[in-house]
Structure formats: C-alpha cells, structure tokens
C-alpha cells in the first residue's frame, strides 16, 4: 500500500517553506551547536555562504517544480530530465540524481535480516528505490510535502510496492523501538542540520545487529563546494565516529567517498592501506603520498559510515 501519512509537521517554524538563506543560517547555528569546536576562534570557521555552497543543487524549488510536472501526469524521470541540471562537461548530472549507484554501499553491509528499511535521506526517493531492491519493505520519511508526493508518484509509476511514504520530522519519528533492520541517512543537508539528534533518534529504532548508514559530505564534485567539503567533513571522521558511539552504536566502519556524496563512484575504507591502494591505482602521486599520512582525509570530500547496534 502506498499512502502519504501526514503524521507530524516539521518542528521548525516555517518548515519546508523556509527561504534558503534562512535555512543556511539555521544550518550554521545547528552546526555550531553540534560541533562546538567550529566556534573556537583558533580553528577555521565555516561561514554561512560556504554552507550554502555545500547544499546540493536539488533545492526545494527544483523539487517543487519536478513535483508539479509529475502531478500533471509526466513520468518522474522525464520531469527530472526537464530540469536545467545538466553538467555539460560530463553529461552526468541527470544520472547523478536518478542514479541508483548511490545505494551500492548496501553490498558492503551485513545485517541479520533484510526485512524493513527506513530512508531518512529525503530527496527524490533514489535511496528508497534502491533499498527496496534489497529489503522487503521500505519507509520513506521527509518533511516536505513536495518530496513526499513526488516519491509516492515515483513508486506508483515504477510499480514499486511495499513502500510507505511518511511525512514527519526526524526528531519525532512515528515508529516504535526495534522497527528496522537498516536506516539510511544519506544526504548533505540533514546530517549537518542535526547530526546528534538524528543519530539518537535512529539508534532505538534499529533491531539488534541492524545498521545505520550515515553519509556526510559535499554535494559538489569540484570547486569551492568540494574543497570546503574536504575541510568541513574530512576531519569529521573521528568526530562523527565519536558522535555515533555516544549515540550508542557499537561497531562503526567508515569509508571515504569520491568524488562527492551525490556521486559516490568510489568508496574507500577509511584506513591507510586502502586509501593508499586506491590512490596508487588512480596514479595520483600527491594522493598516494597523502594517503600514507594522517592527512588522508583531505583527499576526499565525503564519507559514509556504517554503524551497527
């Protein structure tokens, strides 16, 4: 059954209708709250405009525009391709959005049961679509009505059954304890907004042996976004790991992701020998040199963490 459950409105005033500038400011203050080291004057501080750069191209306006076309009967894929998102240098941009390659981390995960998964990544439901290929049932949760409507239509057009679309806020998820085998939080916005809140909300929802996939990183593959991403998220491996442990996860496996969180073409275990092997394979001399050092995080602008309970 596919239904949009309007369970709980977003707790933030204005919710999804917030302007992107206001959103950036709130993201920045949330980031300072959750990662207080960023406000230390001796450390580099992320400015709000840089946070803006880290956001993916998929702004609420684009989602609304895509959803508008789908509402009028267009196939979701055609509606996406009608958007001016094309990266002419690679021809890859549309694939970047619809590409199920974002879900190949699932092959690196092992859980005792492949029954129910929860997708907290929001967006256009790419992760939901991929999770449904592995799990019997999937719940998609987002705060925006446009996202929910779009994913509902997408699943309907793709004849993807056993997907529940739920409109709810992350800090008040309408689920009981031990409900899921896997939870995916894959996207550059939410983890920045409230990482600890999300981690603490997810932990009790996972069954024993269950896994949380938690991605952080820059959406951009190059330029200011990517370099800011390397700075912002690179040295976050230890801090995110520590946050995951504080939230109650026992085993955490981290991967570096290249070139970006929305294009996870390469996933490298976050250790010296794997990074070195990867950099050697890609023939990057600087990369191979850095891979051997503790500064290897600077090579990558995104990470994926698989945290087990």
């Amino acid at each position: 059954m596919r239904t949009i459950l309007h369970l709980i409105e977003t707790s933030a005033p204005g919710g999804a209708e917030k302007s992107s500038a206001a959103l950036s400011a709130s993201l920045f203050s949330a980031l300072l709250r959750d990662f207080p080291f960023l406000s230390d004057s001796s450390k580099p501080i992320l400015e709000a405009p840089i946070i803006q750069k880290l956001l993916p191209e998929l702004s609420p306006n684009i989602v609304a525009s895509v959803n508008h076309l789908v509402r009028r009967g267009m196939h979701w894929r055609d509606a996406l391709e009608a958007q001016p998102l094309c990266d002419t240098s690679t021809g890859d941009a549309v694939a970047r959005i619809v590409d199920g390659a974002r879900g190949n981390w699932i092959w690196l995960m092992e859980v005792p049961r492949w029954d129910v998964a929860l997708d907290l990544s929001g967006g256009l439901g790419t992760m939901t679509s991929v999770l449904r290929q592995h799990f019997t049932r999937v719940h998609y949760v987002a705060t925006s009505i446009d996202e929910c409507e779009f994913v509902e239509k997408r699943c309907s057009q793709d004849r993807l059954d056993r997907v529940s679309v739920v409109r709810a806020a992350v800090n008040s998820l309408p689920y009981k304890r031990d409900a899921f085998d896997c939870i995916s939080v894959d996207g550059p916005i939410d983890p920045i907004r409230q990482p600890l809140t999300i981690l603490r909300a997810c932990r009790p929802l996972l069954r024993s042996g269950g896994c949380l996939q938690f991605a952080t990183g820059a959406a951009a593959r190059r330029g200011l976004g990517a370099s800011s991403g390397r700075m912002a998220y690179g040295f976050g491996v230890i801090r995110v790991t520590s946050a995951l442990r504080r939230a109650g996860f026992r085993a955490i496996i981290s991967y570096y992701v290249a070139p970006s969180v929305t294009e996870p073409r390469n996933m490298i275990p976050a250790d010296r020998r794997s990074a070195y092997a990867y950099e050697t394979m890609t023939k990057s001399r600087v990369g191979a040199l850095l891979a051997k050092s503790p500064l290897r995080y600077l090579l990558y602008s995104a990470q994926v963490h698989l945290a087990y309970v």
Partner: peptide, 27 residues
C-alpha cells in the same frame, strides 16, 4: 568481521540489482 573487509568500490555507475523503470536512463 566487517572491519576486516578488504574491498574498495570503484567506478560505481549503477545499482545492482538495477532499479526499475530503466528506459531512458543512459547509464
């Protein structure tokens, strides 16, 4: 153990198993 894994995913260009509704998808 998961932390003893010795694989690096490279050139990931599409889901396995493939998502539904592939027509028109150029990958």
């Amino acid at each position: 153990r998961p932390d003893q894994h010795r694989v690096v995913i490279v050139a990931s260009r599409g889901a396995i198993p493939p998502p539904v509704s592939l027509p028109g998808d150029f990958v």
